[in-house]
Design a protein around this nucleic acid. Structure first.
Lengths: 300, 300
DNA sequence: GCTTTTGATATTTTTTTTCTATCAGAGAGT
DNA sequence: ACTCTCTGATAGAAAAAAAATATCAAAAGC
């Protein structure tokens, strides 16, 4: 059963006249007669009743008509799916992210708007450490990654600043500095800074250490932790202090307070990273939606 | 976009290997390569990524796959619709009936069973007088008719007895005979019999008059009415008496009582009538479901 | 009785599809 | 590094399918 035959069948069923249907289809009438005949032979069923003067549908033809129209519509949808995919309005995107990105309202509302606007793009999200995400992006195993803090440049990757927010110091409520309005990093003389397990020069760990070094404070670090919620948990347990992005304030834990810093440059930045050579058009669609907060970012 | 190309595309997408897909489709590999190429050209989109050793779907190809499968399923449904229609399991039936048929539980449950069993056969029902239905059946404007009482034979038509039920006499409650257990037609000496507007020799009107003539009673008739509910209404209004099939008892009207007759042969019969030369396979399906209560019927 | 209308058929031409044979590039094994 | 194998692409011939042209046959209208 060929597409063409279905098209011809529907035309004849609608015109109930071979000649008119043929001219509508821009073919000669015998071609139409033959295709209908072939279709009837293949289905072993007469589809039209020809009584020398009028053409009418047989019961089988009538039953077929609705399904034939549906099948042609399905073929149109195939075409539509490809066009959509090419325009990046359909397909799927694998998105990696650092856990704390899912606490930033701007990021969440951008994602929400994207899924609302492009319901045919399926999102696969997975949480990874910054360094792992960069590798996955370079290898094409992730379409895009949301990472925090600085990272090494790579000719295979592009990036874009998503969001910048102040760093706060997470202190146990019992800590002597917890009653101050603003905390100077220089006041934190005792060792005990909790950091993430990022390699040197990458991610929030780097931003944290940079802030302390700017303040001229030498502070000892604890065993690195894998994510910020753990870090805040350890602060509550009195095992140290931690610098965290402001968005972490949504994570309210008894025994922990978040305090602003005197240093206005102590910020954390979220960036979107993607592979330059990605063949996925849905990626361009995403990039078209994500606001470009600043060009100047990149290497520390 | 040809059916064949969709089939090929799905095969390659499933195997991710042109050679294997080709042998699965029982074609040579170059034919497959060319068809895929043609498809990609028509859609102006690369569907497979060939990297000399492995074949993989592009994002567009992945988006297309689901729709392609759906389209192929739709084509199968076209085929299925025709097969169903040929076997009489799909299509539509135009059914005519006399109003009182829709009060007979046996008829109703047969119809219900039929629509349950063959949900893809759409029923169009329309009420007509017996004589009109016979003409519509002969002309092919009705597939089948449910008529009451005797009717003229016609070489173009077949029929089958559906149901036989006693005739009851509908009397005003104030009528002197209304207190009797059984009424003898001979007791109804006063004129005032209400009859349907059937031509002589056809339908309930004939059965009614036959019963009276068998009882040797000459009874005058009133202006004929078009249906039985009207007739019972007129009985309630004291405008006469009427012989009605037992099924009419479901129609309970204040001021009217239904009373059995002494004559055991005073019955009314419902028959199914259809055109011998009908091309509609759904008709055979219906006939296969409707029980054949008796062969001997037909002309009075 | 002739003309017109309409779909079917015959035959040729054109287009499409498939096949066989062959190529070219990339890994694997030696 | 060399050869072998695996894989999909390509070329050209052969086969199949589709379409066009010309013509026919039946029936309705004048």
């Amino acid at each position: 059963m060929k597409t063409r035959q279905l098209l011809y069948f529907v035309a004849v069923a609608e015109e109930l006249h071979f000649g008119r249907a043929a001219s509508r289809l821009h073919v000669a009438q015998p071609a139409l007669s033959q295709q209908i005949k072939a279709l009837e032979q293949e289905l072993e069923t007469r589809l039209f009743e020809r009584d020398r003067r009028h053409v009418s549908l047989t019961p089988a033809g009538r039953a077929m008509l609705a399904e034939a129209r549906e099948a042609l519509a399905a073929l149109d949808r195939v075409r539509g799916a490809v066009v959509d995919a090419r325009r990046g309005h359909r397909g799927h995107l694998r998105i990696g992210y650092v856990g704390s990105a899912m606490m930033v309202p701007e990021i969440l509302s951008t994602l929400l708007a994207f899924t609302r606007h492009y319901p045919n793009i399926r999102l696969e999200t997975e949480e990874h450490a910054v360094e792992d995400q960069l590798a996955l992006v370079s290898d094409g195993l992730l379409d895009v990654a949301i990472v925090r803090g600085p990272f090494a440049d790579d000719p295979r990757r592009c990036h874009r600043l998503l969001h910048e927010e102040p760093l706060l110091i997470a202190l146990p409520t019992a800590h002597p500095l917890a009653r101050r309005d603003r905390v100077d990093l220089a006041d934190l003389v005792h060792p005990g800074l909790l950091v993430l397990r990022d390699p040197p020069g990458v991610g929030l760990q780097d931003e944290t250490l940079a802030a302390f070094s700017r303040a001229g404070v030498a502070i000892g670090t604890r065993q690195p932790v894998t994510n910020l919620t753990t870090m805040v948990g350890l602060v509550a347990a009195g095992m140290g202090v931690g610098l965290v992005p402001a968005a972490m304030q949504v994570h309210r834990l008894p025994g922990v307070g978040y305090h602003p810093l005197a240093d206005p440059d102590a910020t954390s930045r979220l960036a979107l990273v993607w592979r330059k050579a990605s063949p996925n058009p849905a990626l361009s669609t995403l990039l078209g939606v994500v606001p470009d907060r600043a060009a100047g970012m990149g290497t520390p």
